[in-house]
Simulated assay, not measured.
Amino acid sequence: MKENSVQMEKIMREINFKIKIEGRKVLKQLELSTAQFDVLQILYFKGDKKLSDISKSLGVTKSTTTGLIKRLEALNLIEKIQSSKDKRIYNVKITTKGKKIIDEVIIRRISLMEKVIEKMGKDETFIEKLIKLKNTLNEVVEGDEL
């Protein structure tokens, strides 16, 4: 079992790395850092967030997050909206321009997956197993069974 776990971790890491690198080719053209892109992804997939929530998600200090937010705001990729209830709190929202960047990355990654599927041949059971793997991984992580 341990040997399979080691092999599975290595395979998943390699797959994730290749997909990530393909998507990040878009970022090189735009001169965005991976940390800035991570902020955009959080906002794109999880919706508007407070600065403190972004810091927690990234695992970085609030001052680091503030710097990332300022640079993204200057590029018009996000906007900060002051809370009407508490003037000290700002919510961060991704702009249409920011969403377009994420969309470009996703399109590039999908294109890569299309090429992979073309080479492998269409296999419905493979996709079903991937879905089962994802769901099981989510259950274990959410259940904190590690």
Rank of each mutant, 00 (worst) to 15 (best):
M1A: 14
K2E: 11
K2T: 09
K2V: 12
V6Y: 07
V6L: 11
Q7E: 05
E9P: 00
E9K: 07
E9C: 02
E9L: 10
E9G: 00
K10W: 10
I11D: 06
M12C: 08
R13K: 12
E14V: 05
E14R: 06
I15R: 04
N16R: 10
I19E: 10
I19L: 14
I21G: 03
I21L: 14
R24G: 06
R24Q: 13
K28D: 13
Q29S: 06
L30C: 11
L32E: 06
T34N: 11
T34R: 11
V39N: 01
I42A: 09
I42R: 01
I42F: 08
L43F: 02
L43D: 04
L43N: 02
L43Y: 03
L43C: 01
Y44E: 07
F45E: 15
K46N: 07
G47D: 05
K50I: 04
S52T: 12
S52Q: 10
D53C: 02
D53H: 11
I54P: 01
S57G: 09
G59C: 06
T61W: 03
T61F: 07
T61N: 11
K62D: 12
K62S: 14
S63Q: 09
T66W: 10
T66L: 10
I69C: 01
K70Q: 13
A74I: 01
L75P: 07
L75I: 04
N76T: 06
N76Y: 14
L77N: 04
L77Q: 02
I78R: 02
S83D: 08
K85H: 07
D86F: 12
R88C: 03
R88W: 04
I89Y: 13
Y90S: 13
N91M: 13
V92T: 07
K93M: 08
I94K: 05
K100E: 15
K100A: 15
D103K: 13
D103E: 15
D103V: 09
E104V: 03
V105E: 05
V105R: 07
I106T: 00
I110S: 14
S111A: 12
M113P: 00
K115N: 12
E118Y: 12
E118Q: 09
M120S: 13
G121N: 01
K129Q: 10
K129F: 11
L130S: 05
L130R: 00
L130C: 02
I131Y: 07
I131M: 11
I131F: 02
K132I: 01
L133E: 08
T136S: 03
T136V: 06
L137V: 05
N138S: 05
N138C: 00
V140H: 06
V140Q: 02
E142V: 07
D144T: 02
L146W: 12
L146D: 11
L146P: 03
